[in-house]
């Protein structure tokens, strides 16, 4: 599907005379065992924009196997669209990230929460737009939420539990293209502890300081991301990164910052094609 972002990227490409073809995954199938590139995707460079986690992951795998350079790569998709793997990648790269535990049973989760303390945050390892993310205020509340999860799909019984970082009522979303942080916004929540703009969080411009640029680029590199959205929180000890998004949205960020994110993305992709 073509959202505001994809249309803006297509228009930016047209404006620059960069040949770009929009490909709908719903309309295509990809040979996993055939030789050579897929004829339905003529271009060597593919910007992956699929909104569905599973379609995104597996189509990236198939397109890479067919010889395409996919932005972002399968390795990036794997290590960022899964919050647990992303935490591990950030930790490996030395990027400050909130204290996080994983548990696999209700009792394990309660023990992990005993170590983390309350409030704490429970998120699905794979999930987006803040969906099913829960702020666990105390032990009774946590037990009730986790008991509910026990009746859900087994993927929700991977308990990804994170400290609740004390911060201003906002977080920071930055956009990294190549090795540069091109834009940043503050996301402020309106009556919801979650700041996702998909949940009504408001986008306001944020200056890209050296500290913001450093941690954002380091987080992007941790997952080998080439065009990613990095989520940061302002903790009392400095910035921490809690998430890297491999198919980042910027509909609200372009008007808030005045930065031509789609244009910069096209410039970067065109530069890859020349290499």
């Amino acid at each position: 599907m073509i959202r505001w972002e994809e249309k803006a990227i297509a228009q930016a490409a047209e404006k620059r005379g960069v040949k770009a073809t929009l490909v709908d995954l719903k309309e295509m199938e990809i040979s996993l065992t055939g030789a050579g590139a897929n004829p339905k995707v003529a271009e060597k460079i593919v910007l992956q924009r699929c909104v569905s986690h599973y379609r995104n992951l597996y189509s990236t795998a198939a397109l890479e196997a067919a010889g395409h350079t996919v932005v972002n790569s399968l390795r990036t998709a794997w290590n960022s669209s899964d919050k647990l793997l992303c935490t591990l990648a950030l930790k490996r790269a030395g990027v400050p990230t909130p204290e996080t535990h994983v548990a696999f049973t209700e009792e394990g989760a309660m023990r992990a929460l005993g170590e983390l303390g309350y409030p704490a945050v429970l998120k699905p390892a794979v999930g987006s737009w803040g969906r099913l993310a829960a702020l666990l205020k105390d032990e009774d509340f946590a037990r009730a939420i986790i008991e509910d999860r026990e009746y859900m799909h087994p993927s929700y019984q991977v308990y990804y539990l994170q400290e609740y970082v004390k911060r201003p009522p906002r977080d920071i979303r930055t956009f990294v293209i190549g090795d540069r942080t091109v834009a940043a916004i503050y996301r402020t929540s309106a009556g919801d502890w979650r700041t996702n703009t998909a949940r009504g969080g408001k986008a306001e411009p944020c200056k890209v300081t050296k500290e913001i640029d450093d941690i954002s680029v380091k987080a992007a590199k941790a997952v080998e991301g080439r065009f990613v959205g990095v989520d940061l929180m302002e903790s009392k000890d400095g910035l921490v990164c809690h998430e890297v998004n491999n198919t980042t949205e910027f509909k609200n960020s372009v008007p808030a910052t005045g930065i031509d994110i789609p244009g910069l993305a096209v410039d970067y992709l065109a530069s890859l094609d020349r290499r």
Binding site: V51, S52, W129
Partner: peptide, 26 residues
């Protein structure tokens, strides 16, 4: 709604878009 364009006739139609799935997002 999703825009469907018939390249031959140029006819543009709308069909209900896919419903948001559990694995959608960024």
């Amino acid at each position: 709604y999703e825009v469907k364009k018939d390249e031959a006739s140029g006819l543009v139609t709308l069909k209900p878009a896919e419903k948001e799935q559990e694995d959608w997002g960024e």
